[in-house]
Simulated scan of single mutants.
Amino acid sequence: METQLKRRHLLVGLGTSGLVAASGCTDSLELVNDSNDEETDERMCVEDYRVLDAELEERSVVYPDSDDPFLGFDLEVEPNPVAAHRNFTVTLTNVSGHDLETYADDRIAIQHAVDGEWRPTVGVADDHEWSDRTTTHEPGDETAWEIDVSVSEPVLGTYEFCTMPTPGDYRAVFWGFPHGPDSDPLALATEFEIIEPEDDDEESR
C-alpha cells in the first residue's frame, strides 16, 4: 500500500511575554510575572490568547516505544537536535497494521522541561473550539506539521508561542486521540533538544 503524507504548515508566532513558571501537564498552572516576580493568574500569551494547558490536564502522556498502551502511532521531530530559532517538523505515523482514527484538527503541543516539569510553551485563542470531526489514518500514513518559529508577527494560525523557545530539552505532544467515557484520555509524546546555532548558521540568518 502506498504511504500517504499529509503535510500541514503551522505558523507559530513568537509572543513577547515570557512563561516563567508552570506545573506539569496534569496539574494547574502557576505563573510568575518576570517583571516583578509576583505570582499572577494572568496568562502570559498575547491578548485574547491563552496557554495550552487545560486540554492536556486529564491526559496521560505515553511515548512511541510504550507497549502499554500501544497506540499504533510513532511520533518524531526532525531535525533533532533543532538549532534555536529554526523551523522543525513533527511527524505522526501509523505504524500499526490497521486503520486508526484521530481528531482532524491540529492537536499539537510543545512543552519545555524546566526543573523536572514539563511546561507549556504555546497558546491558542481564548475562543478557539476544537472539532469533533475525525480522520482515518491507513497503515503507513504520515501527517507532518511544519512548526515555523521564524515569523515575527505575534499571532499566526491556530497557535502562538507564549514563551520564546530557547536551548533546552523539549517534547512534542500529540493529543488528538478520541476516547470513550470508559477509557483513559491519552497523548503521545516524543522528546527533542533545542541547541545554540552553529556560528556559520547564525551568520546566515
Rank of each mutant, 00 (worst) to 15 (best):
G140V: 00
I110C: 09
G24T: 10
F73E: 00
P69A: 03
W175Y: 15
L186E: 05
P154G: 08
V32Y: 12
D68Y: 01
R59G: 00
P139Q: 08
V114S: 14
E39N: 12
S152E: 14
E129Q: 11
E193W: 03
L10G: 08
E58N: 11
E101D: 05
D182I: 12
F70I: 02
E138K: 14
V61R: 03
P139S: 06
A54R: 14
E2G: 11
Q4R: 15
P197Q: 00
D65V: 03
T134A: 03
D141E: 07
A84C: 08
N36A: 12
E30V: 15
V46Y: 05
A189L: 04
E191L: 00
D68L: 06
P178Q: 07
V32I: 15
W118N: 02
A113P: 04
L71V: 05
T3Y: 11
S17Y: 14
V124D: 14
H179D: 03
V82Y: 03
F73L: 05
G15S: 08
D53R: 12
D105W: 07
Y49C: 09
L52T: 05
E101K: 08
A104L: 11
V95A: 04
T89L: 10
R50Y: 09
D132P: 09
S152C: 12
G176R: 13
E42M: 15
R7H: 11
E42P: 10
S131M: 00
E191M: 01
R7Y: 09
D67A: 14
A187T: 01
D148E: 12
R171G: 00
T135I: 11
Y49V: 02
E198G: 14
E203W: 02
H137R: 01
E117K: 15
E198P: 05
G97H: 02
E58S: 12
K6D: 13
H112Q: 06
L10H: 04
Y170S: 02
A109R: 06
A187L: 04
N87I: 04
D74G: 07
H112D: 09
P165L: 07
S17T: 10
T190G: 05
S183H: 07
T190A: 11
E58K: 14
V61E: 10
E138W: 10
T136K: 13
V77L: 09
T3I: 13
D182Y: 12
G157F: 04
T134E: 10
G157A: 07
